[in-house]
Design a protein around this nucleic acid. Structure first.
Lengths: 207, 207
DNA sequence: TTTTACATGTGAAATTTATCACTTACAAGA
DNA sequence: TCTTGTAAGTGATAAATTTCACATGTAAAA
């Protein structure tokens, strides 16, 4: 029934959410497709098209209720309830994530994992660090739905498979994983090197 | 003369580079569009189309010389020579970047910046930490071309403008910047929250 | 030297995504 | 109650991107 949704649309939904969070501060209650469009540097018709994939959230002649729209977008993104996350790797990136207020975005890191003895059993920012050997068990017990992988490259595949075996339904990784995984689940990457390379291209292009 | 290049093409070039780095290990010297396609889970014709935007790098009936192709892609991305980078913010993310072997990718962090007195003047992983007040001066002196912003949100705009004033031609930021910047330069983001949200959407969609 | 096999590079077609332009419905004011 | 202004929602259109399919050129084998 539902048409295929462009990935670009989903990415823009996250921008709309950032915009809404920002505008909410001002105390406004109504917002128009133009406002979102301006904030995101796109056309207002694209904003309306993006939202129309999922329903009719606005009022003709008026606009969108900010609080309603926020709820709808969160529902679409599946963050209308908090999602429980497990984090592998308590190095610098892992610690940065533990310090980041992800809860505001609908994610809660419920457990962290590492292999360094001096870290196991400690709490960092209120989050207990377990040994990676216990990952499957802890994922199951705590019913963690998502995994964030912030371990060195060579450990990434093993960690990913453990998370999946523990029941993770999606993974976000900072390290490239040499597939295939035990089971196919949504897998996304944050590749800092790639972003720098794209930026480098854009710089060269300007000249 | 040159047609507009899709951003998706540029992103795929970075994947091709990862693939090449991987295949090089095996000692192979020739590679075909199909190999890259399989690695990246796309069609071989798309690989050839992507490359053809920039020239004819292959040999009909044979394939691509791995070392030649690597050189060409690095040239396209502007990383045929090492680019000098300045890093603002020596928190967890900043330290992670300092530990990351970016040099392998053609980037060298030549200076770091922070506002915490206990860090100023120290070296982390061989990189000197300066005070953010000296950013413009150091960027100019060291001729840094790119800036990575890993400071808290509220400091990001100020840092970005200083980098630009110091001569940075492109910025990569982990914090959302409330534009406008002093001068328009290529600006990219790494948004961890957005990636988690997209992942969450994909998980919900599966069900 | 000629033939054969094969992967590239590329017009043309198909598909996907974004924009345009108009219809519809709501709200506020007369 | 009726009129008017306005912004959402949406078919139709345009633009961008990907795929198809084949001509082209190279290398290796006969």
């Amino acid at each position: 029934m539902r048409k295929r949704i462009p990935e670009a649309t989903i990415r823009r939904l996250t921008h709309y959410l950032r915009c809404i969070e920002f505008i909410k501060e001002t105390g406004a209650e109504i917002l128009q497709s133009r406002d979102l469009a301006t904030f995101c540097s796109i056309s207002d018709s694209l904003v309306r098209r993006d939202l129309s994939y999922f329903g009719e959230f606005g009022t003709k002649g008026v606009g969108y209720s900010i609080s309603e729209l926020e709820k709808h977008i969160k529902k679409i993104l599946g963050i209308d309830r908090t999602k429980k996350v497990g984090l592998a790797g308590v190095g610098n990136i892992g610690r940065a994530l533990l310090n980041f207020p992800l809860l505001k975005n609908g994610f809660s890191i419920e457990a962290a994992f590492d292999i360094r003895d001096e870290l196991i059993g400690k709490k960092i920012n209120g989050v207990m660090v377990y040994h990676e050997n216990d990952m499957i068990k802890v994922f199951k017990e705590k019913q963690l739905e998502m995994g964030i992988i912030a371990v060195p490259q060579q450990a990434a595949l093993d960690v990913a498979n453990k998370m999946i075996e523990g029941g993770a339904k999606g993974l976000l990784s900072f390290a490239l994983i040499q597939c295939p995984l035990k089971k196919k689940v949504p897998l996304r990457y944050i590749e800092i090197a790639a972003e720098l390379e794209i930026l480098s291209y854009e710089i060269e292009k300007e000249e």
